[in-house]
Simulated assay, not measured.
Amino acid sequence: MSQNNFKLIECPRDAMQGLHNFIPTELKVEYLNLLLQVGFDTLDFGSFVSPKAIPQMADTAEVLAQLDLSNTNTKLLAIVANLRGVEDAIKHEAVDYLGFPFSISETFQQRNTNSSITQSLNTVEEMLSLCAKNNKKAVIYLSMGFGNPYGDEWNYGIVEQWADVLVGKGAEILSLADTVGVSTPEKIENILPELISKFKNTEIGIHLHSIPADRFEKIEAAYRSGVTRIDSALKGFGGCPMAADDLTGNIATEDVISYLNSKEEILNLNMDKWKEAIAFSVKIFG
């Protein structure tokens, strides 16, 4: 029996952000408060980004004010896309982590954050500095980490090179993100062990998108690669609204839990609260 101390990152923000109809703030709060009681390491709960870009997340500050953090050890992560977002997020004491999507595809970086890779690197530097001063931690997503649909150059060396640059700037947590579902078990097992062994003092995670049929083999590849930080979303809802594909959603949390249980990993989750959250999710996702 392994005791790898898995960090499960539940991502309702990623699940909700692309939904067309605005979810009332009180419904979001009720759903997040249930998820906070399950026992995940971190809840990726909202984002401080332009309401024009992601209208669904316009109420993140209001949602945050109503979260019940009195009875949970789960940490809160908010996504930011520029310095203004960083400055908004760090004002909130309850936010533990700021997540930044650093794309290694120039085309996607422009689409997603309206800035170049070079400009985004400057943002990351400022963000790391502000996080250090404000007792927050940064999570840098290596977005399009498994390839991209735009024909921008991609290979394992490019992934490693950018990881090297970001760690050199002071990044302590990197999450390799498959924004459009192009990861394969082979790619996962080629890249992840390399990064984990090269950057021993950096927490390396994975944020995969997948079609339902491929989920289990991707989870297994990540596990075999030695990853202990996994992003997922209840029922695999969501995906990236900037990279439209209806079939490709998040990895489903229940699949991750089921796989890790089969490996006798100790997850310390409150499964009653998890079942309540699954039942409640119908009110949000239909």
Rank of each mutant, 00 (worst) to 15 (best):
L19E: 05
S197G: 03
F280S: 09
I9N: 04
T184P: 12
E276S: 11
V38T: 13
G46F: 06
E220W: 10
A243F: 11
G239F: 06
S115G: 10
K7V: 06
V63L: 04
K169T: 04
L8G: 01
A222P: 10
N148L: 04
F48G: 07
T118I: 09
K7Y: 00
P51G: 09
G170D: 14
K283N: 15
T184E: 05
A222R: 08
E276H: 09
D96T: 14
L64E: 01
A132H: 10
N270M: 07
S50M: 06
T107L: 07
K136A: 04
L174T: 07
S47G: 15
I204H: 03
S210E: 06
L269K: 09
N250V: 08
R229E: 00
Q17C: 10
K283Y: 10
T202I: 15
E87M: 07
E220Y: 14
L69P: 14
F100W: 07
R215I: 10
L36H: 06
A222S: 15
I196W: 01
D246I: 02
I54R: 00
A65K: 13
M57K: 02
K133W: 00
E276W: 03
N268P: 07
N33W: 08
K235Q: 06
L77I: 00
L35I: 15
N122C: 07
A138H: 12
R84K: 13
T253F: 13
I158D: 01
G39C: 12
